Amino acid sequence: MPSLRSKALSAALAATGRRRRFASAEAVRTRVAQSARRPASHLPPRSLGRVADISRTFVGAWPVYDVCPRGGEPDARVLYFHGGGFVDELERRHWAMVRALVVRARARVVVPAYALAPRGTADRTVPVAADLLSGLIESGGAGGTVLLGDSSGAGLALAGAQRLRDRTGTQPSRIVLVCPWLDVTMSHPDQAAIEAADPLSARPGLLEAGRLYAGTLPAEDPRVSPLRGTFAGLAPMTVFTGTRDVLATDGRELLRRARAAGVEAELHEGTGLPHGYPLLPVPEGRAARDRIVELVRSAANA
């Protein structure tokens, strides 16, 4: 059962209208148009600079933040792709995850502020994601590399890992996917029932966001919907999802398909928990972040 704090936060998020951001195709188009007129900031909070060294470079048009622990070499490396339906920028909750990894796991965390849809489409974005992953793996130093993504960022992360496997066979030490969105067709038959209890996400808006991200590619293309790609040869995976998340079906299907392909995979499914709960300030979120920190620490010893 979810904690009282989790129930209260889910109710508060629903009451404040957060679901309306993806309630309809029109809502998504309106949000994209507003962002084009007044782009949101992707800058890290100032408080992060008090505990980490932060630098920024550019990969093409992408600002890429490199966040490192102070006082010595990092023990592991993390490439983190943030969520937001492919149309929203990095937010404080994403940077809070970065802070936890830097401070508690002593990880170097590379955070791309990737181009958002409709300017950033899968055919352009996935190859750059693969390039960044390859570069981080090859950068050397102690420990291994963990590929982390949440929501739409998890889809980009998985597509990038598949692309890199097809290029060179190279993989990170582990792939961690938080409430992943892996199939933008939103066609799983169980999603209608889950959507009724989801306080944050709705299929009509997600379908539109997925269409914008797909660009000229079919929604079924594995670059857009990596759940429809192949899994043999991928790194071990850890997946988090909640039963009140319309995207829970993607995590479940990923577990089934990865294991069928011989890939080590584990699924943590939180009963009664909403989309993105590992990033929320609730007991279940803290427990999930503890597990992610543990996984990164394990990579440091790989």
Rank of each mutant, 00 (worst) to 15 (best):
Val176Lys: 01
Ala248Phe: 10
Ala235Arg: 00
Ala261Arg: 01
Pro222Arg: 00
Ala265Met: 07
Gln171Ser: 10
Tyr65Thr: 13
Ser152His: 03
Met186Lys: 03
Ile175Thr: 15
Val293Gly: 01
Val178Cys: 12
Ser139Tyr: 09
Cys179Pro: 12
Gln34Trp: 08
Gly160His: 02
Ala299Leu: 11
Ala107Arg: 03
Leu227Gln: 00
Leu217Asp: 11
Ser151Lys: 04
Ser173Leu: 10
Val102Arg: 04
Ser298Gln: 15
Ser41Arg: 08
Glu284Trp: 10
Ser41Lys: 08
Met1Gly: 15
Asp290His: 09
Ala76Glu: 06
Thr230Leu: 00
Asp166Arg: 02
His275Tyr: 11
Gly143Ala: 12
Leu295Ser: 05
Asp53His: 11
Ser6Ala: 15
Pro69His: 07
Leu101Lys: 03
Phe240Asn: 08
Arg211Pro: 05
Ala192Asn: 11
His82Ile: 06
Gln34Val: 10
Arg56Ser: 05
Arg286Glu: 14
Leu147Thr: 02
Asp250Ala: 00
Val110Glu: 03
Phe240Ala: 06
Val64His: 09
Leu200Glu: 11
Arg37Ala: 15
Val87Gly: 01
Glu208Asp: 07
Leu177Thr: 08
Ser47Trp: 13
Glu195Tyr: 09
Leu280Glu: 06
Ala52Phe: 11
Arg19Phe: 12
Leu273Pro: 08
Trp62His: 06
Tyr213Arg: 00
Pro127His: 05
Arg19Gly: 08
Ser35Ala: 15
Ala214Cys: 03
Ala302Asp: 12
Phe231Met: 10
Tyr213Ser: 01
Phe81Ala: 01
Arg20Ser: 12
Ser151Ile: 06
Val146Tyr: 06
Asp250His: 01
Ala52Tyr: 08
Ser41Thr: 15
Ala300Lys: 08
Gly144Asn: 02
Ala154Gln: 03
Arg5Pro: 01
Val51His: 05
Glu264Phe: 09
Gly229Arg: 00
Cys68Gln: 14
Leu79Asn: 01
Ala8Leu: 15
Val296Thr: 05
Ser35Arg: 08
Ala258Tyr: 01
Val102Thr: 12
Thr271Ala: 15
Ile54Met: 05
Ala258Thr: 01
Leu132Trp: 10
Met237Phe: 02
Ser187Phe: 02
Val110Asp: 05
Asp75Ser: 14
Gly144Leu: 04
Asp190Arg: 13
Pro127Arg: 03
Leu158Arg: 01
Leu43Arg: 14
Pro127Phe: 10
Arg163Leu: 13
Glu89Gly: 12
Ala61Ile: 11
Val109Gly: 02
Pro45Leu: 14
Leu156Gly: 00
Met97Glu: 12
Ala232Phe: 07
Leu279Glu: 12
Gly242Gln: 03
Val184Thr: 08
Gly276Leu: 08
Leu136Gln: 06
Lys7Ile: 14
Glu208Cys: 09
Ala76Tyr: 07
Ala157Leu: 03
Val103His: 05
Ala76Cys: 07
Gly155Glu: 02
Phe81Tyr: 10
Arg56Ala: 09
Thr271Cys: 14
Ser55Gly: 14
Leu177Met: 13
Gly72Glu: 06
Val224Gly: 01
Val184Met: 02
Val128Asp: 03
Phe58Ser: 14
Ala8Thr: 12
Leu280Ile: 13
Ile194Val: 15
Leu43Asn: 10
Val87Cys: 01
Asp183Tyr: 00
